[in-house]
């Protein structure tokens, strides 16, 4: 198909799509409607489980199986990236040049790095109480670590990033989630049933299984995203194709 034909075809179809979708929107309850049957039940269930953050209760307790699937996707994507961005037979790695970093940048990075890591841990730990949780905290931890790349250089980042361990931690986090679900079966309930003591409402230990699963997710996401970024960085900075003569380099 020529480019013009393709775009014309798309526009013809898009007009139909747009008209039908707009017609469908007129049938929706108006924006801000008060009737949400599932939501009402979910809030009641979360309070019953003594989980102050209802979203966490839905994510890690009521609809925990969705989250198990979601974490498996992340796990699969990390494995997939390891496979797709592995070093091919005809590639070799080059040594990245040590980059020069402005002292002010280095200072900023050195200050920000611990702050970011602490923030990440805090957000993971308080997932069942306040906004945040394993996923958000994990991503912040992972991106925070890469401040080392900004502040120092690629080799420093490589030193503080034990990939082999993180790779296993990613798998272990995903496995812990799936295995914690078995606790419910062992206790005579259903898979992923929240069988731990629920604790006091509003406390760090409240919510039963929720903080535990949350922590497992935090470990998995943090480790997984670091591995993911590591393989992309590795390709962008280190891997050389045979014909490649450019020096590239880090920093």
């Amino acid at each position: 198909m020529s480019r013009t034909a393709r775009i014309r075809l798309f526009w013809a179809a898009a007009v139909v799509f747009a008209v039908a979708y707009a017609a469908a929107c007129t049938g929706l309850p108006r924006f801000g409607t008060l009737a949400h049957p599932y939501a009402t039940r979910a809030v009641a269930a979360a309070l019953h489980q003594r989980t102050a953050n209802v979203v966490s209760s839905v994510n890690f307790d009521q609809r925990a199986f969705d989250t198990l699937g979601e974490e498996s996707i992340l796990f699969a994507a990390v494995l997939g990236t390891i496979v797709l961005l592995r070093h091919a037979r005809d590639e070799r790695t080059g040594r990245p040049r040590p980059g020069r970093v402005l002292p002010s940048t280095r200072l900023l990075g050195m200050v920000l790095l611990p702050v970011t890591l602490l923030t990440g841990v805090y957000i993971v730990a308080h997932g069942q109480l306040s906004p945040g949780g394993g996923f958000q905290g994990g991503v912040i931890l992972a991106t925070g670590l890469h401040l080392a790349y900004v502040a120092a250089d690629y080799r420093v980042l490589k030193r503080i990033r034990p990939l082999a361990f993180l790779d296993a931690a990613d798998a272990a986090g995903a496995g812990a989630f799936a295995a914690l679900g078995l606790a419910g079966l062992v206790a005579g309930g259903a898979y992923l049933q929240n069988v731990l003591p629920l604790g006091t409402f509003g406390q760090l230990s409240s919510g039963g299984l929720v903080p535990v699963v949350n922590a497992a997710v935090g470990v998995e996401v943090g480790a997984g995203v670091i591995v993911l970024l590591a393989f992309f960085l590795d390709q962008a900075v280190e891997v050389r194709s045979p014909e490649e003569h450019g020096t590239g380099g880090g920093g």
Binding site: R41, R63, D66, A190, Q193
Partner: peptide, 14 residues
């Protein structure tokens, strides 16, 4: 899953 059996025909689980 999670032992969220329906009560009065309604459940919050999967």
């Amino acid at each position: 899953l999670g032992g969220w059996y329906p009560r009065r025909g309604e459940s919050v689980g999967i």
